[in-house]
Structure formats: C-alpha cells, structure tokens
Computed example of a mutant assay.
Amino acid sequence: MMPRKRLGRTDIEVSTMGLGTVKFGRNQSLKYPTPFDLPSDEQVRRLIDCAHSMGVNLIDTAPAYGYSEERIGDALRKSRKDWVISTKVGEEFTPDKFSDQGHSRFDFSATHTRMSVERSLRRLRTDYLDLVLIHSDGNDLNILQQTEVLPTLQQLKQEGWIRAFGISSKTLEGGLLAAEICDAVMVTYNASQQDEAPVIAKSAQHGAAVLLKKVLASGHICHDAPAPGAVVHKVKAEIDPIQQALDFAYAAQGVTSAIIGTLNEHHLRDNLFKAIRAQDSAVSTNE
C-alpha cells in the first residue's frame, strides 16, 4: 500500500503519490507527446477506484483542467471523506471549438479567488477543500507579494473553507518564498528539470509540504518506454525509464508526494508499484 506523510505543518495525511487529473477534463493546449480523447465517466471511476485500492488518497485538479472538477465531484459523491482534494485558483482555461488550441487567462484578485473557491466547492460537491494552490502564470514573486490572492486564501482558511494553501510555482525565487509563507509548494522536478531543487530543501527547513509535478516530464519519459508486460530485448528491459524517473524523484529528501496522471488503468497500477519500489529504495539508501 502507498505510504502516507503529513502535509507540511497541517494535520492532513496524504499518500506519497497523488493522482493527477488534467486528462480527466482537458485535452487542448497541453505538452503531452500524443493527442488523446477525454475519458468516459466509467473510465474516470475505474482510475479513481484503482488508485484508492492501492492506498492513494490525494487527488489533484484545477479549474483550468476543463471538466476535471465536476467529474471528480461526481465520482467521489459517496467517498469524499476518503480523499484529500487539492485544487487551484488563478488560471481559467477556455477551449477552442474550432481547433485543439484553447487559451488561458489569469486573475489573482480577491474577488476572483473567492469566486473560484466557491465554484470549486460546488463542482467537487464538498463543503471544504483540503488544499488550494495558486496556479501561477510564471510571475511567482509578483503573485505572492503584489496581488490579493495570498491574503484571500489565508482568510478563506481562517473561515474554514480550505484547510491549507500554497502555490504551483514556476520559478526558483517564487518557490523559495512560498516555502516560508505557504503550507505547500508544488514544483517541477525530474532529472532534466532540477532548477527548483533548492525549494525542496528549504521547504523541509520551514515545514512546508512539497508536491512534485512533471515527474515523468508530461508523459515524455514514459512515451518511449515499453508497455507493462511487453516482451522487449533483454538489454533494453534492464533500463526502465519510468522506474528511473520515480527513483530520482523520491530520492530527494523532503518530498511529500509526487502527482502523476494517466488514462490507462494498467499504467496507473504499474506506476503505483514502481513508486512504492522507489520509496523503499530511497529508505534503504538513506539508512
């Protein structure tokens, strides 16, 4: 079963691998290696049930993920208490009806932040949100220091609508500041993208949670990997890029959870087993 860790300074316990859900509701303007169709409601439920059966309790979504929040809300109607739901504020995505390229806009005002949280509560069919992350547009420092979003999230936490807040950052400077003033920071981290690695160490010093995104480089790492159970040449079989990526991610001390998404139930189960293996290996190495 998937291990769990405390979400930073909070009393929330989260699985060390979380289920990413951008593909549940959006398939435009993404950086994945191949196009895909949105899953059926039954497929969404099977993926969520598969993750839950192996101990995953953290699910990550966002308003910018299209229909993702609504679909999660429908799927978790009878099991909300079993899940830690992380969503976001700040980015709004509008799909294009005539092409595969929609567009995003950003709003970090107090009015929009509160509206976004209230809308997420309705869509997710819940009366509280466990974690709300700021969906950065790349100007992390300006967002954290000059806009109304952070004090609004602090107020919403005091009012009991959310349990924790943070930022899905895009810069080292923003992540380092967030480590000091937020409950959680979501950073990009894989072997090819290590710029935000100092954020992991600083978050550990300040007691903030660290969630990893793009561990599999938006699917590019696993795109050329053999399918689970496939018969491959022996030399190639010795190198599993997905296992390598997960080993790398969990070797970083201070990581709370890695967020990974897929629409393939078999791949999800395989990734979960590999995540457990990677954590066992990291523990052995640290000992």
Rank of each mutant, 00 (worst) to 15 (best):
A208W: 07
H267G: 00
H206F: 13
H206C: 11
F248V: 04
R269E: 11
L216W: 07
A217P: 00
V215F: 01
P228S: 08
L272P: 02
G254H: 05
I221L: 12
Q243C: 01
G207P: 05
Q253A: 15
D224F: 14
A251S: 12
I259F: 05
I260T: 03
V231P: 00
P241I: 10
F248L: 06
H223S: 14
H206K: 13
A249G: 09
G229T: 09
A209N: 04
H223Y: 12
V210Y: 06
S218E: 14
L246D: 05
V231Q: 12
F248I: 02
Q253H: 12
G261R: 05
V231M: 12
I259A: 03
G261Q: 07
A249C: 15
K214D: 09
A258C: 14
A227K: 15
K236F: 11
L268W: 04
Q205D: 13
P228D: 07
R269H: 11
L272S: 05
A217L: 13
A251P: 00
A217K: 12
S218L: 04
V210A: 04
K234D: 11
H223K: 14
I260D: 04
F248T: 05
A245D: 04
G254M: 08
Y250L: 06
V210Q: 03
I242N: 00
I260N: 04
K213F: 03
P241A: 10
V235T: 14
D270F: 09
A204R: 14
V232W: 01
P241H: 08
A217E: 12
Q253L: 08
A217M: 11
F248C: 02
A204T: 06
T256D: 06
I260R: 03
A249T: 14
E238S: 13
K213V: 03
P226W: 09
V231N: 11
A245Q: 06
H223R: 13
